[in-house]
Design a protein around this nucleic acid. Sequence first.
DNA 1: CTTAGCATGTAAATCGTTACATGATTCG
DNA 2: CGAATCATGTAACGATTTACATGCTAAG
Lengths: 178, 178
Amino acid sequence: MSLRYAVLGLIAELDGASGYDLLKMFEISLANVWPATQSQLYGELGKLADAGLIDAADEGPRGRREYAITEAGRAELHRWLLEIKPRKPMRDETLLRVFLLGNVTSREAQEYMRAETDRLDEALDGLAALDETVEWDDDDLSRYGRLVIEYGRRSIAMRRDWFEWARAEMRSFDEPAG
Amino acid sequence: MSLRYAVLGLIAELDGASGYDLLKMFEISLANVWPATQSQLYGELGKLADAGLIDAADEGPRGRREYAITEAGRAELHRWLLEIKPRKPMRDETLLRVFLLGNVTSREAQEYMRAETDRLDEALDGLAALDETVEWDDDDLSRYGRLVIEYGRRSIAMRRDWFEWARAEMRSFDEPAG
DNA sequence: CTTAGCATGTAAATCGTTACATGATTCG
DNA sequence: CGAATCATGTAACGATTTACATGCTAAG
C-alpha cells in the first residue's frame, strides 16, 4: 500500500498536479526511495479518486487532469505517516549475493567484494560532486529531501566500510579452522 | 528473479533438501535479506526443475521430494553471483515517510524521529544479546551469514545515528529561513 | 511541418501475500 | 487416539514491470 501514500503525499505537497507532473516528481525525488512506473501511477490516481482521497478536476488542455487532496485524504495521510509502523523487512539483493557467496571460490568472492568497495567509493565521489552543484529550496520537500539524501550518503559510506571489513574477514576463511 | 537464485543458492549449499527444509532455512537465515512465503517457494521449485537447474527426486515418506542442484544450475548460480549487477533501487518505507514528513506538524515530525531512534536503540540491544547466545558453525552459510549479520548491525546503528542527527536538523526548520 | 515534450491510458506477464485445503507421520 | 509437526499444493488478489497505443501542443 505504500505507493498509494507516496502519491497521496506528493499531491498534498504540490497541491494541484497531474499524473505527468507526479511522474516527473517521482523521477527527480522519490525515485531512490520508492520507484514507480507510469502505469502504476495512473492506476493509483484512479484508485485514490475512487476512494475519495483526492479530487480530479475536469480535463484541461491536452487531456491534462489536475488532482488535489481532499480533507479525507489529508486525514488518511496523517494517519499513515504517524500511526502505521513499517514492519516488512527490506529486500537487499547485494546482501543475498553475499549470503550465497560460499558458492564461488574464495578468490572470486574476495574479488567481488573489492569491486563492490570500488563501486561504492565512486558513488560517494559522485554524491560529493552533486552536493556542490545542487541548490536547495526552502519548501518541505526540499528540506526533508535533504535529510533523505544525507541518509543515502551515510548508507553508502557504511556499505563501503562494511565491504572492506568483510573482505578482510573472508581472507581468514581459507585458513584451517581454529 | 532474485528469489529464484536465493532458492537455487540454498539448494546448492544444503544439497539434498525438500521444499519444507528450504522453508525452515529461509526462516532462520534468509528471512531478513530476502523473505519468501511457502507458496512462492514451492512455485519456484517447480520452475527451477522445469528449467533443468535442479533435479527432483521421487516422492519419499510423506510426499517429501528432495531437490539437488544440477551442473547447469551451478553454472547459472555462478553467473548470477558474479556477473549480474543489482541495479534496482531498494524500497524503504521509513525513508518514504521521512520524505513526506512535511505533511505533519514539526512537533509531530520530531516526536516521530525520536520514537524511531528509541526503536533502533532497542534493536541494537536485542542484537547484542543475541550475539552472545548464538553459536556459529564453520560451514559457508554460517560464515557468510555472520558477515551479513554484522551488516545488519551496522545498518541499524547508522539508521539510529541518522535519526538522531535528522531530528536535530529538523529543529531548525521552525526558525525563519536565513 | 516535423520533432520533442506533454499527457493519458490499457494489456499481459510476473512476482508477492494471504488464505485455504489436504494428507502423512511421530510422539505422548 | 489426538496434537504437533512434516509436507505439499492451489486459488485469489494485489503489486510491479514492460510494452504498446494514442493524441495534443509548442517550438524551431
